Amino acid sequence: MTTPALSVLDLVPVRSDQTTGDALAATRSLARVADELGMRRYWLAEHHNMPAVAATNPPVLVAMVAAATERIRVGSGGVMLPNHAPLVVAEQFALLEAAYPGRIDLGIGRAPGTDPVTSFALRHGAGGVTDDAVEQFPHYVDNIITMMSPGGAGLRVGGTMHALNATPAATSVAPVWLLGSSDYSARLAAEKGLPYVFAHHFSGRGTAEALALYRENYRPSEEHPEPRTFLTVNAVVADTHEEAERLVLPNLLSMLALRTGGRLAPQRLVDEAETVTIPDEHHALATGMLDRWIVGDAKAAAEQVRELATTYDVDEVMLHPVAGAYAGSAADRSVTREETLRLLTAALD
């Protein structure tokens, strides 16, 4: 079976024993571990107004992680474009690419990544309403790519052409990836000849169909003559399967609350999660999610990663490490998430 390269997706989780500053420190520590282990890339998500997630601003987080690491690629997984003016995104990632040439990825998504009220607040005064931004998504993607390029874009206003550059003197451009959890982004990425990632870690369903659609309809571009994709998956790896099952509980409870309309709160510690009884009506949902995650000891987890890479024909698997923490753990680190990376990397060698 295929032995893929490993990467990391980070939502910057906030536990019940952490401040936002603690969670950011834990992310820096986790990113340094990924860098030291030789992982390929480290991406940071965009979610808003969630008590258990501090990943609200991907470009700020990308800058923080790139500064804390040496060689790993750092990117957004992803910037939710309906929330932002395209020029702002182009400016942010042009600067990041200039500061860390050859190490920056710009992953772009079409979903708002938040609730309708927060979505309105994000877009208010930022160039249009969310529905318009979703409709204009393909056009905005083109604009961002063009504005980040050394030649920039031309904007015709009042019969006069005006130059529009994301940065004054670009010498390289961060590659753009389209992200999605439906067929829409797969079709668009294929049409535009862009790399594409399906959110397997979030959806877990329709992955094979989306990737097949992307590959079958791919139109080669100058920058990307071949289709390029990889797989994302939630993962908890520990010394034993039993330990991994304990460590996955806090994230499982958070996802159940999100999917069933329950109360959202900072992520519980393992000790707190073990006191919670999952309602009978939610057992099937919990089991279905766990079946799509990697939860186990290093040997079993490595086999699952190889099987996923072979099944979906990818040379890279992006781990979303979701191991919880025990009471008394250092607040400024996520030791069990770091251990997931270390154990799995060693088992795949």
Score class of each variant (00 low, 15 high):
5 A>C: 12
6 L>R: 01
7 S>D: 03
9 L>S: 13
9 L>I: 15
12 V>A: 12
14 V>K: 09
16 S>N: 11
16 S>F: 07
17 D>E: 05
19 T>Q: 09
31 A>S: 02
32 R>H: 13
34 A>V: 07
34 A>L: 06
38 G>S: 08
41 R>T: 06
42 Y>Q: 02
47 H>T: 02
53 V>L: 15
60 V>R: 13
63 A>E: 15
66 A>I: 08
68 A>W: 12
70 E>F: 09
74 V>E: 01
74 V>T: 11
74 V>C: 05
88 V>L: 13
91 E>W: 14
94 A>V: 06
96 L>V: 08
97 E>W: 00
97 E>I: 02
98 A>Y: 07
102 G>E: 12
105 D>P: 08
111 A>N: 10
114 T>A: 03
117 V>R: 13
117 V>F: 12
118 T>I: 07
119 S>P: 02
123 R>K: 12
129 V>L: 13
130 T>L: 10
131 D>E: 15
134 V>W: 05
139 H>M: 09
140 Y>E: 10
142 D>S: 05
143 N>P: 00
147 M>G: 00
148 M>Q: 03
148 M>E: 00
153 A>V: 02
157 V>R: 14
159 G>C: 00
159 G>T: 03
165 N>K: 15
166 A>M: 06
167 T>M: 13
168 P>F: 12
169 A>W: 09
169 A>E: 09
170 A>F: 04
173 V>W: 10
174 A>C: 06
175 P>C: 05
178 L>H: 11
180 G>A: 03
180 G>E: 00
183 D>T: 10
184 Y>L: 01
186 A>M: 04
187 R>Q: 13
188 L>S: 08
189 A>K: 03
191 E>R: 14
191 E>F: 06
197 V>G: 01
206 G>A: 10
207 T>F: 05
208 A>S: 11
208 A>K: 15
209 E>R: 14
211 L>F: 11
213 L>A: 09
213 L>E: 02
213 L>K: 01
216 E>L: 01
217 N>E: 11
221 S>H: 12
225 P>T: 07
230 F>L: 12
232 T>Q: 05
232 T>K: 11
236 V>W: 07
237 V>N: 09
244 A>M: 04
248 V>A: 08
253 L>M: 03
256 L>H: 06
261 G>L: 05
266 P>G: 09
272 E>Y: 10
277 T>P: 03
284 A>T: 14
286 A>P: 04
297 D>Q: 11
301 A>Q: 02
304 Q>W: 14
305 V>D: 03
305 V>W: 07
313 D>C: 00
319 L>M: 04
320 H>R: 11
321 P>H: 02
322 V>G: 00
326 Y>M: 02
326 Y>V: 04
330 A>C: 07
332 D>F: 09
333 R>L: 04
337 R>E: 00
345 T>R: 14
345 T>E: 04
347 A>N: 04
349 D>M: 08
